[in-house]
C-alpha cells in the first residue's frame, strides 16, 4: 500500500535498480499531469520513477542532420537555443500556447508525448516538424516517426519500462513555423482544435509543407493529404481554401465536453487558412 518515488541520478543507475522496483512502476518527469491525477483520471501508481533530474534527458544539441531534444527538457528552456528557433519554429510557436508559464517550467516534451493525448500542443508541433521519437530500454534503442508512435487516446507503442529518451527533428533550411490554437479561453486551456504548420517557401511558392492537427482524431494527426497537396503549390487564395477543405476531410473529430465535432472540423480548415496566410509575402 505504501507509495514509492525512486529518483535516480543517471540512466545507468535507473536501469540497474529497475528490477528491484514494484511491477506497477511508472515514469514521472515534470509531474504536471500527475498533480491532476484525481481530477482528470490519470492513472495513479504505487511507484514513480522520477526522471526529472537525469542530465542525459535534459540535453538539447545540434547534430549534423538533425536537432536532438531530450525528453526531460523543460518547455520554457527551449527558447534559449538559437538552433531550435531556426529548425523548430512551429515548436516555439506552440510553446506560448502550452499550458501556463508556471507549468512550462516543469513540463517536458517527453511527458507530453508519453501522456499521448490527441490535444498535446508540443506533440502536434513536433509531428508537423516530422520529428522522430527515440526510445530506450537498457542498452536497446529504437526510433520511429513520432506520428506513428501513438495508437489511440492515451495509448502508445511504448513497451513495459521503455523510456522516451528524446526527439530528433530533421534540419530543414529556411523553415517557417506556425501554431494556431483554438482553446476555451484566451490562455491556458486545452485545445478544441490546433493546427501546426511547418513550411519552406520560395516567394509565395510552397516548397515544402507539413501539417499536423490536434484534438481532431484519436491521436495527434499528421495531415498527410493536406501536406502533400500544399507541397509545390503557389500559395494563392484558391490553394489556401482548397487546402483547408482537404484538411477538413482528413480530420475525424468527436463531440465531447470540450467542443463539437462539426465545429472542430470547420475550425481545422479555418486555422490552417490563417496559418498559411501568415506565410504570404
Amino acid at each position: 500500500m505504501s507509495e514509492i518515488i525512486f529518483k535516480p541520478c543517471s540512466l545507468k543507475e535507473m536501469w540497474e535498480e529497475m528490477p528491484n522496483l514494484p511491477e506497477s512502476r511508472k515514469y514521472m518527469a515534470g509531474g504536471t499531469d500527475i498533480v491532476t491525477v484525481e481530477n482528470a483520471g490519470f492513472p495513479s501508481s504505487e511507484c514513480w520513477i522520477d526522471i526529472s533530474d537525469i542530465p542525459e534527458l535534459a540535453t538539447v544539441k545540434e547534430e549534423k542532420d538533425h536537432v536532438f531534444i531530450g525528453a526531460g527538457v523543460k518547455l520554457n528552456d527551449l527558447e534559449t537555443y538559437p538552433f531550435i528557433k531556426k529548425y523548430c519554429p512551429a515548436l516555439l510557436a506552440a510553446v506560448h500556447d502550452f499550458a501556463s508559464p508556471s507549468l512550462r517550467n516543469m513540463a517536458t516534451l517527453g511527458g507530453n508525448a508519453g501522456n499521448a493525448s490527441p490535444c498535446a500542443d508540443g506533440v502536434c508541433a513536433l509531428v508537423s516538424l516530422e520529428a522522430a521519437i527515440v526510445l530506450r530500454k537498457g542498452n536497446a534503442e529504437r526510433k520511429m516517426p513520432l506520428r506513428d508512435f501513438f495508437t489511440g487516446p492515451k495509448r502508445t507503442k511504448l513497451e513495459k519500462d521503455e523510456l522516451i529518451y528524446g526527439f530528433e527533428i530533421p534540419k530543414k533550411e529556411n523553415l517557417l513555423g506556425q501554431y494556431f490554437k483554438l482553446g476555451p479561453r484566451a490562455f491556458f486551456g486545452i485545445s478544441k482544435v490546433a493546427v501546426a504548420l511547418s513550411a519552406a517557401m520560395e516567394g509565395n511558392k510552397v516548397k515544402y509543407a507539413s501539417v499536423a492537427i490536434a484534438s481532431v482524431a484519436p491521436v495527434p494527426l499528421y495531415a498527410a493529404k493536406t501536406s502533400e497537396y500544399l507541397t509545390g503549390k503557389e500559395l494563392t487564395e484558391d490553394t489556401i481554401l482548397k487546402a483547408a477543405d482537404i484538411a477538413r476531410g482528413e480530420v475525424s473529430p468527436i463531440t465531447d465536453a470540450r467542443s463539437e465535432a462539426d465545429y472542430r472540423r470547420d475550425m481545422s480548415g479555418i486555422l490552417l487558412e490563417r496559418a498559411l496566410r501568415s506565410f504570404l509575402n
Binding site: A40, P184, R185, F187, F188, A257
Partner: peptide, 14 residues
Amino acid sequence: NPNFTDYVCATTKD
C-alpha cells in the same frame, strides 16, 4: 467535467 481542466473560468488574460 468536475475539475478546472475542463470546467473553464476566465483568467486575468481574458
